[in-house]
Nucleic acid binder design. Structure first.
Lengths: 349, 349
DNA sequence: CTGTTAGCGCGTTCAG
DNA sequence: CTGAACGCGCTAACAG
């Protein structure tokens, strides 16, 4: 029923081994022989059996990409960039590797499950994107998994995530969330703001903590008291930004600025402010983080910290495919750039 | 080095076949035996070899998802919804299927290449999202591929895409782009607009054509001349919307409304209008399509046609997994809902 | 309910 | 440069 290597070999009057060599291009084969083989492949409409070759070769053409939520452009942009770099020559027959995108939804269990599933597939590489969960048990469980993957020959790269324990052999491209958060808040302080609300992401996540630490560092550096009532935790979504803003305004109606965990949350904050009859930035300044594509279309355009998501993803992809040297020590910090736009201004007198 | 089924079998004092049965849960196994096997699996930290079982079973746990661009939430939302429905019980050991996301970038060649790659992987199912390319040669090439996939037992589902030839056995969930486009333009006409600009998507794509046809049908139904100078083609991105808007204004400065191919393009149009000193909707009304999450945060909020992307994706995923009956005839039309918001209003007198 | 027996289709030695 | 032979790790009949 289905065409196999042997069928191609028979038709091309060569041995199966030769066909395999032609297809994988890893061994010298006479030009004329190659011709005949390729013709036979074409005539029979032969398609290599991936599982069979993965079994024999003990490695597959799959690259796992773990994301929190692929519907969120923050992850979509990284995933797309990774994918654009894992194809091309260098792989097995055809050279195209396939991206297995795994939505963890931020759940530790799913993260581990997917890592196991990728291990089962003998993935050529695994790239974990976005912040990590800061639960001790989970961190060590992940580290153990990463170690096993590395032992099995799977390349592990962290993209936008803090480094894993050194013995995991995982390369890390880490976003400078702390520095970005600090510069952002310093920008607001520089404008004259002294009463700043902060909408943080979910607890127990590195991204949340680092951004918040940067914010607090800026406050501390300028002698501004860090009133805990000015910080609210929520999810990384619009609704959370909306509700948190109402809550912040309830607690302290004379806030002059709101710093959001990310752009999506900032958009929700803007909506809440508008619905409360407050003007941006006339009454309250708003700042986001990430600089997702829509941020520039907010009205006023959102002041935020641009993270080079596509560049980082592309680099992670290349490193995963050994097409680029890992950074020295296996760790690189990727900086963010402060984008000052219309949503922040001087506080009302 | 690596633990195999046989190792587990030996430790549990059963045959390899029994271990396989426990892991796949497809055959009755005595509870006590299962216990012993699972314990052995645990103690040895055994992970099934995916390629090996795919080879033996002649089918894998992989589900292919073809998208134009995973960084675009239009596709990200569908991909995420699909993924949420392909896991769960019913599959092989563990029951979790993996989503292979393939970015075609709208290129016909890449589309075919990815279909071949998925065929090679013996994917359990393939879901093609978004509009199709309307090139005769390509359409038949894709149909041929889909037929082969179906023959090999791969379930094929089209999500947000017009039906393929009936003999491909592909189930299609098609968006009613024509109807949505028509209602949108009728809404504008109803407000009193007579000079409407249209920013279409790339040529040779079903989505572009259908939305445009709906627009024209509305014009025709109301006796409004369809001046070709009022239509500009571009890509489905913000920049394209920006430039097309400037071009439309150059051609006909007294347009009172602009209909965009999708929300992203509409955002670009809004930016161009603002930069041109025109107010929305006071001077020019703007409408989009899709109702992506950010559309409600545009200022003014975007009038658009909501497509139930998540619902359609989820349904496509269930159909692909045979967890839901395909629609009668294998074809279902998914309607859009007109969302009237602040970006459209009566034209200036 | 469980063990035995054959492959699944390919990559990779090792000879030639 | 090419062929022969073996085994990758698992599932699927078939018996029992």
């Amino acid at each position: 029923m289905t065409v196999t290597l042997a069928d191609v070999a028979a038709r091309a009057q060569v041995s199966p081994a030769t066909v395999s060599r032609v297809l994988n291009g890893n061994y010298p084969v006479a030009a004329s022989t190659r011709e005949r083989v390729l013709r036979a492949v074409d005539e029979l409409d032969y398609v290599l059996n991936g599982p069979a070759s993965a079994l024999a070769a003990a490695t597959s053409d799959l690259v796992g990409i773990l994301v929190n939520d692929i519907a969120d452009p923050f992850f979509g942009i990284m995933a797309g960039a990774i994918q654009s770099e894992i194809g091309g020559p260098g792989g097995r027959a055809g050279g195209e590797r396939l991206a297995v995108v795994c939505n963890t939804g931020g759940s530790p269990e799913r993260e581990l499950t997917y890592l196991t599933l990728l291990q089962r597939q003998r993935a050529a590489a695994v790239i974990l994107t976005g912040g990590a969960i800061e639960n001790e048990a989970h961190v060590s469980a992940v580290a153990a998994k990463l170690r096993k993957l590395a032992d099995a020959g799977t390349r592990v790269v962290l993209c936008g995530r803090p480094p894993a324990p050194a013995d995991t052999d995982a390369v890390a491209l880490t976003f400078d969330n702390r520095g970005g958060g600090r510069r952002l808040t310093e920008h607001l302080i520089g404008l004259g703001h002294r009463r700043l609300g902060y909408i943080a992401g979910p607890e127990e996540r590195t991204t949340t903590r680092h951004r918040l630490e940067g914010h607090r560092a800026a406050l501390a550096a300028h002698g501004i008291e860090d009133d805990p009532r000015r910080t609210v935790h929520g999810r990384y979504d619009r609704r959370s930004g909306y509700e948190a803003t109402l809550e912040l305004l309830r607690r302290e109606p004379d806030l002059t600025a709101i710093v959001a965990a990310n752009d999506t949350v900032a958009l929700g904050a803007c909506a809440a402010l508008r619905d409360s009859g407050l003007r941006i930035p006339g009454d309250v300044s708003v700042a986001g983080f990430d600089d997702l594509p829509f941020s520039i279309d907010a009205v006023p355009a959102l002041t935020t910290v641009r993270l080079p998501l596509a560049e980082a993803g592309a680099r992670a992809g290349r490193i995963a495919m050994s097409r680029e040297e890992p950074p020295p020590g296996g760790i690189a910090t990727v900086g963010g750039e402060l984008m000052v736009r219309g949503s922040t201004g001087a506080p009302r007198p």
